[in-house]
Design a protein around this nucleic acid. Sequence first.
DNA 1: TAGCCTGAAACTGTATCCAATTTACGGAGC
DNA 2: GCTCCGTAAATTGGATACAGTTTCAGGCTA
Lengths: 228, 228
Amino acid sequence: MKKDVPLKPGRTSLTEQITTELRRRILNGQLAEGTMLRQERLASELGVSRIPLREAIRHLEAEGLVTSELHKGTVVSSLSPRELEDLFGIRMQLETWLFEAAIPRATDADLDRAEALIDEASRTGAVDNWGDLNWRFHEALYLPSGNRVALKLLRSVHDNAARYVNLQLFVMRDVESELSDHHAMLAYARLRDVERGVDVLRRHIARVSRNLSASLAAAAEKPLKDIA
Amino acid sequence: MKKDVPLKPGRTSLTEQITTELRRRILNGQLAEGTMLRQERLASELGVSRIPLREAIRHLEAEGLVTSELHKGTVVSSLSPRELEDLFGIRMQLETWLFEAAIPRATDADLDRAEALIDEASRTGAVDNWGDLNWRFHEALYLPSGNRVALKLLRSVHDNAARYVNLQLFVMRDVESELSDHHAMLAYARLRDVERGVDVLRRHIARVSRNLSASLAAAAEKPLKDIA
DNA sequence: TAGCCTGAAACTGTATCCAATTTACGGAGC
DNA sequence: GCTCCGTAAATTGGATACAGTTTCAGGCTA
């Protein structure tokens, strides 16, 4: 049953490779919320034993992406609309703060790196790995703030929200406005205009959050209709 | 070699119990920064096998309390002064935000619960578990904000800083001012005075951060003198 | 002394076994 | 027919033994 899944080799432990692979599958929806992670099935599918797999699961559990219950197993976490709202609140607080600190400190090289990520997203269309490129752009913008601890934390926050965002992003045709916001943020950063830059970011996060909530509400509406 | 360490039984997995126990030891300094976690030694000392121990280590690694390197093992993390500063920056942003949202929403019962935690800290002196009581007080104050996701995140942030705070807290005789700040925060919360309450919190975090930095700088000075 | 070699220690991962618990299934009783 | 209950299969949680790698210290040699 070995499917020879591409566990990138190198100087990383098997546990870490499995963690990365499972995280990827969760974020791109291959492992949808509520999916049960059967240890033996997954282990044989990945071609590994249960031990490193279980360690990977514990890691993802600490990140909030999966939830385990004693003797019942592990499922891909589901977030309530409330929890998603909480996540966007955290993003709003931390990201506006980091961006504000980053703009005055950013060198042209820093901003060039961020721009390259926008270009890559535009060029490739970025349908498959939008979430990854999106986060890397934001990260590049905030990096000059110097607060790497906050960036590490925010990556996890992004990941937890990204699954849901990705699901409705392309349905809503929001990619264009996302990219447009990114261009604007970068432009104001180049002008070292903190106030306008942060303002764009604030509206950016608010809009993504709003669209997501609306999308979730609409999805919650449908099943009810089916019943009625 | 079984030492029958008090792993509280109940409906929690061994992995979880070990995680809690190791976290406790790290936070109270029993496992100092840089300490190597030898799997077999620790396992036999705790009276468990390596499997749940390794899972616990992965969990703590995700929390940032320990750091693993392939084939070299796991050590209790060391934080640079810069990283500690980053942590306090995050606290400042998130806690002032949560407190601001919590004050108008707090019921008298909420605040009574917070006050009980102050009392407990005062009564017991709280030398052994100051970090725990301290966080639980802050958590109780922010809980009415409703943002449980942020509280979960902040717990980890607190933990990562708490080790260092605890080390110098009693040397500096800072417990009194800590408690005094807590009383003031609670009092303003009871008055529903958002502005003054948040202001006390802001100064509170800033002072703890400043004292800690000074303490670390002083500690860094000593070894140099020893050499000279 | 510098550099290399070697062996013990430790980590990483596999395989296997057993215990505890959940869950599904099927029959007894109403 | 429906509910309840007991049993067996499936699954997770945990222990143990073992093999392969890597690190690292200490000794040997040039």
